[in-house]
Design a protein around this nucleic acid. Structure first.
Length: 199
DNA sequence: TTCCCGATTTACT
DNA sequence: GTAAATCGGGAAA
């Protein structure tokens, strides 16, 4: 199957919502200590810059943590949540526009065994934003890293996920964002479609 | 410097 | 279904 690394233009063209949907079906890889792990992106969420109350950069907030989101699209924004879980985001848009897509779930493809080890033998390897970061060994070390680097990258394949196979719903765990919590910016691939991608 | 709380996961009642 | 784990960011003082 044909497979190539996504060009950086992918991350700077179109709205963050559009890019969040286009990332579905792409394949995320990480390389840590020589071990390559990765999987198909199945679930994403868009975080839309300074007007989105759920976004860390809401209101133009610019701090040590959020400065990564202000970089040009095509880098990783990784931060620690609840003091124990890392969250991986893909920064989008041009420099100065703080938008990002949270990667919430993958379908494991490569490096199953090391991922199982990192997950301490648990059955769920890559379902959940904190979970997949643990499986792929992604930490704040990767914050600001290019998505075309040797240790972190995203590939596209010769298929495309049609709109009818994308489920849309409100984002998760952001009740604090009030009315913005209702925005349907959570996207995921229909379960049965994923298995057909593997054939 | 203090204090509150989070884009979650897991174990347990 | 509920609660604990755990710590750094961000706002206020």
């Amino acid at each position: 199957m044909n497979s190539k690394i996504l060009p950086l233009e992918f991350y700077t063209q179109g709205s963050v919502v559009t890019i969040a949907k286009k990332l579905l079906g792409k394949v995320l890889f990480s390389k840590n200590k020589g071990i390559v792990t990765g999987g198909i992106i199945c679930e994403t969420e868009a975080y839309g810059g300074i007007t989105d109350k759920a976004c860390h950069a809401y209101g133009g907030r610019y701090t040590k943590r959020t400065e990564t989101m202000y970089l040009q699209g095509g880098v990783a924004y990784v931060y620690l949540c609840y003091g124990m879980h890392h969250m991986l985001n893909v920064v989008t848009n041009i420099e100065g526009s703080p938008e990002a897509v949270l990667i919430r779930a993958l379908h494991p493809l490569r490096g199953i065994s090391p991922m199982q080890k990192r997950r301490n033998g648990r059955k769920n390897l890559t379902d959940g934003p904190g979970t997949l970061c643990q499986a792929l060994a992604i930490t704040k070390q990767e914050n600001g890293l290019s998505l075309k680097s040797k240790s972190l990258w995203i590939e596209y394949r010769d298929y495309k996920i049609p709109t009818k196979d994308i489920l849309t719903s409100p984002r998760i765990g952001i009740d604090f964002a009030k009315e913005d919590a209702l925005k349907p910016w959570h996207f995921r691939i229909k379960r049965q479609i994923i298995t057909s991608l593997l054939s």
